[in-house]
Write a protein that binds this DNA or RNA. Structure first.
Length: 114
DNA sequence: GAGATGACGGGCT
DNA sequence: AAGCCCGCCATCT
């Protein structure tokens, strides 16, 4: 488990949670983008893995994280996929016929260091 | 140290 | 356009 690491050190996953928590409603980010912000542009996989530990009870708006295509991956979790879409739609995010959203429109750009 | 996992991303056919 | 394979990364066991 990584949700309660006793190392006292902030793991990559913790950074993911912190970043996702900063995503405002009505906006989304991609796994790759989160990884990039955390300093590992190729760690998109690890990002998804970090979010996969989050239960629907979490304080982290995991549903605001989508894949590079603006779609929902949640491989093997159709229920969660539906929930994610509903949550996003509830925030004003519109899905296209392809089941994907327009990242050009909803992608959230973090304020950055400055 | 080595093997296994996975809510990704890109490239090829 | 859709499907398949590989690589990448961080973490767990």
């Amino acid at each position: 488990m990584t949700r309660e690491r006793a190392t006292g050190r902030e793991t990559f996953y913790d950074c993911v949670y912190a970043f996702v928590r900063g995503v405002p409603a009505g906006r989304v980010v991609t796994y790759g983008q989160v990884a990039l912000e955390l300093g590992s542009p190729a760690a998109a996989r690890a990002v998804g893995y970090a979010l996969h530990f989050l239960p629907g009870d979490s304080d982290v708006p995991w549903w605001r994280v989508v894949n590079a295509g603006g779609g929902i991956s949640l491989r093997g979790r159709g229920e969660a996929a539906e929930a994610q879409r509903r949550l996003l739609e509830g925030e004003g995010v519109a899905f296209g016929r392809e089941g994907a959203i327009d990242l050009r429109r909803y992608r959230w750009i973090p304020p950055g260091p400055g």
